[in-house]
Amino acid sequence: MTKKEIFKVSAFTENSVWKQILGICSALAVTNLLINSLVMGLGVIFTLALSGFTISLIRDLIPRRIRMMVQTLIIASYVIIVDLFLKAYFPEISKSLGPYVGLIITNCIIMGRAEAFAGKNSPLDSLVDGIGAGVGYTLVLLLIAFIRELFGFGSLFGIKVLGDWWQNWSIMVMAPSAFFMLAILIWIINSKSKKVG
């Protein structure tokens, strides 16, 4: 497969969220504001790409029995770097994301890609695969956040777009609405892709 194909497959065809239903937890948690979703997405892209690259680089040396321990350690290290970086350079966003940046460690997409792809493919391919999976995840987050922030706060990226007449839907701010949005999104995408196949 070319790099372009790898990217396409991991970002869209085999999208982690809508095809594999992974990473749902964070998709529910941070998607009530667009800016939080964007930063979260970038953090996940960074972690996915670099952890994939690193794990692939040492894949022949990792003893099979302890490979998960090694993967977790590597993933956690990159997540802490993201967390420290945000604290130092974007303290406001770091504050509003609270514990969720640290929780990227538990995002199954990252472990999933490490197991399914990085352990068997070359470092550069794994890097591209990581970026692809991360972009796919970020797209879903932004889509859901777009709807939730618009209806929940009447704003987009913190800028008011709906006038004073708009009554905020508090359900959109709370986690249950993300369940509905995600389900509707998966429904639409599945029904579309079935027609093609």
Binding site: L73, I74, S77, L84, F85
Partner: peptide
């Protein structure tokens, strides 16, 4: 002994990397 050694080496490398990065950002934070 190999898995044990491997884990120790990987841990030292990554924790070292984190400690360096932490020192680097600490002052700013």
């Amino acid at each position: 002994i190999y898995p044990v050694l491997f884990m120790i080496i990987v841990t030292v490398i990554f924790v070292g990397m984190l400690a360096t990065f932490y020192q680097f950002t600490r002052e700013r934070v």
